[in-house]
Amino acid sequence: MAVEVRIPTILRPYTGGEKVVTAEGASLQELIANLDATYAGIGERLVDESGLRRFVNVYLNDEDVRFLDGLATEVTEGDSVTILPAVAGG
């Protein structure tokens, strides 16, 4: 079950500069664990004990996962996951 994950500039040192990587898992949590197994250290930049870090936004097919099931959000083959830092607008 391969899912495409878009990595923001700031985390690319972990992926050897790759912008888009693939990871496996049935949920976002599994996906992040799988990412961390391949790219050691990236996991703790994304989550802490309480869940997704405050300044990290993760989108499943463009929808913010905090309004889906958070880390328990199911992912399926062909989905696209985008990770972005929180930025200001206005």
């Binding site: 985390l11 930049r45 929180a86 930025v87």
Partner: peptide, 10 residues
């Protein structure tokens, strides 16, 4: 999104 680190998010 060119922050220096994630803690600079807003």
């Amino acid at each position: 999104y060119g922050l220096r680190n994630l803690e600079e998010g807003f």
